[in-house]
Design a protein around this nucleic acid. Structure first.
Lengths: 117, 117
DNA sequence: TGAACACTTTACCCTTCGGTGAAGTATATC
DNA sequence: GATATACTTCACCGAAGGGTAAAGTGTTCA
């Protein structure tokens, strides 16, 4: 799997609120959560949760371990790093545009003052 | 539009390589790029590019300004900030797991040394 | 052994997504 | 006025996405 595909998958995972909630839950519970516990808070049936877990798995964001009849799901956030790195490039741009906005506001302010309005 | 919906849309934008390429291009050219210039490097027809631009627009990631018959597209990266903030929560987790990995490796190392292998 | 439990798989539904060809609109340019 | 340019809209297509009900598998417990 190349970088492009990895980014596609991780960002696709993150574009769904249910999956983000699952990730957030796993982040809080480092020891892992069973599939049914993960499903409980959501208003969807188990098979739908299964599909979400498959998507998370394909993106490499979780690991699953079966013990007896229960499956423990754990977070594997490493693939998020690449996504974060990708986004980081735009960080300077936000600050830059905020700076520009501030500069503009200031210029406007001075202009107004000079005009004696 | 609430936060959940904004995150859905921004991450959905980012899950497509063509759209990431468009964003990257716009990041390099701060003065804006025309629609046809944006489309040129991609092996898809204009209507497809249009749809990508609509998706970017709906997520608030670009602005479009028509002058004569050409439309200039500019980056508006502010909505990415929220997405980045969301991801940032997992940053500590990467470092944490890297730390744990390092600790494990070190323990293993000592163990091996003690055993005199 | 039989029933309950914790998933998992299958088959299906409807909607959204990413793409196309073709036709349409508005603005240059000759 | 005719033609080229720069989009834009429309109608369509096949694949993928998120959901369901129902049936299946393996484990635990009485």
């Amino acid at each position: 799997m190349n970088q492009t595909e990895r980014l596609d998958r991780v960002f696709a995972v993150l574009s769904d609120a249910t999956r983000r909630a699952i990730l957030a839950r796993l982040e809080r519970e480092e020891r892992g959560v069973s599939v049914s516990d993960l499903a409980r808070p959501h208003a969807i049936k188990l098979p739908a949760v299964m599909k979400h877990l498959d998507v998370l798995d394909d993106a490499g964001l979780i690991t699953r371990a079966k013990t007896g009849r229960t499956v423990t799901v754990r977070l594997q956030p490493k693939p998020m790093r690449e996504a974060m790195e990708w986004l980081r490039r735009y960080e300077r741009f936000w600050s830059a545009s905020l700076d520009r906005l501030a500069a503009y506001a200031e210029a406007k302010e001075n202009e107004t003052r000079k005009a004696g309005k």
